[in-house]
């Protein structure tokens, strides 16, 4: 009898359903009960938690902060990574292997250590901050730790290696022959980019950016360590609601809100990307 390779998909599917589906279901269910304090939930189904999201500005502020920081993080990372990934995809295999290995090796440094490194680098009396102050880029009162700038730097620091590797595989799949064909038939370097490389890499770039957005929306370590408890993104807020107040219902509601943000952003991105036709021009 022939072995059905499709069966190998079942264990990961089961794992996915149990770990992800089940926990989300628990969150959804918890979010529909009122908090009675010290971790107890009311019996009756109610939408009061969701009503509170609207009434208390701080929750929506947290949502918009998360959206803003993540989206900006994605954009900055994209602009930093794309040229690097492109250059690597066109380098000799020796060079690209060497540099990609270095990039992978940089992920040996775990997130808390990276965050710590940043706080040392941006210490108030350190040379970097002195230089920034001398250039009037920050004022005298500015403290790195606890600023949204710090969280953003942490995000980009975390994201840039992922993004380079993801974009590298996207760009490497575009044959150099196509660039040559465009060049010989009259396209300058800029036009080759605009008419061939960017449109062909667009789908891959969009999905890489979405992976990044999802990662940053849920980023906890950078936000908590570099935000110094002052930058309340949704993951930080969820943690507080759980650990400080033991409001499991509200924490579950916030988890649902985070999920909704990520799902909406993904759908919106796919929709916008599909508005561009194959040649990368906006369809009107």
């Amino acid at each position: 009898m022939r072995f059905r390779w499709g069966l190998l998909l079942l264990p990961p599917l089961a794992l996915f359903l149990i770990l992800l589906g089940f926990s989300q279901f628990v969150f959804l269910q918890s979010s529909l009960h009122e908090d009675l304090g010290i971790g107890r939930l009311g019996e009756a189904f109610t939408l009061s938690n969701y009503a509170e999201l609207w009434q208390d500005r701080s929750y929506l502020d947290s949502l918009f902060l998360t959206l803003r920081l993540s989206a900006l993080g994605v954009l900055v990372t994209l602009f930093l990574s794309w040229p690097v990934a492109y250059r690597l995809s066109r380098a000799t295999p020796r060079t690209s292997t060497l540099i990609l290995t270095a990039i992978v090796a940089s992920s040996f440094v775990t997130l808390p250590l990276k965050a710590l490194g940043l706080t040392i680098l941006f210490a108030a009396e350190g040379p970097l901050m002195q230089a920034l102050r001398a250039l009037h880029l920050v004022d005298a009162e500015f403290r790195f730790l606890g600023s949204s700038f710090a969280v953003e730097v942490g995000y980009v620091h975390l994201a840039v290696t992922f993004e380079i590797m993801m974009l590298f595989s996207v760009l490497q799949a575009i044959p150099v022959k196509l660039e040559e064909a465009a060049a010989i038939h009259g396209a300058s370097r800029f036009r080759v980019m605009w008419r061939v490389i960017i449109p062909l890499s667009l789908p891959g770039t969009v999905s890489a950016s979405l992976v990044l957005f999802n990662l940053l929306s849920g980023a906890f370590v950078s936000a908590v360590l570099l935000g110094g408890g002052k930058i309340l993104t949704l993951p930080v807020l969820i943690d507080r609601t759980l650990v400080l107040y033991s409001d499991y219902g509200m924490a579950a509601t916030l988890a649902m809100l985070l999920l909704a943000l990520i799902v909406t952003a993904n759908i919106a991105a796919v929709f916008v990307a599909s508005r561009f036709n194959r040649t990368g021009e906006l369809v009107t």
Partner: peptide, 25 residues
């Protein structure tokens, strides 16, 4: 002179047609 200024046409071994453009494009 860079290729794009040479006024040359080139047919490549594997054709190198732009996969995201129609034949007319």
């Amino acid at each position: 002179l860079p290729p794009h200024k040479r006024q040359i046409g080139n047919v490549f071994q594997d054709y190198a047609l732009f996969p995201h453009m129609t034949i007319a494009e």
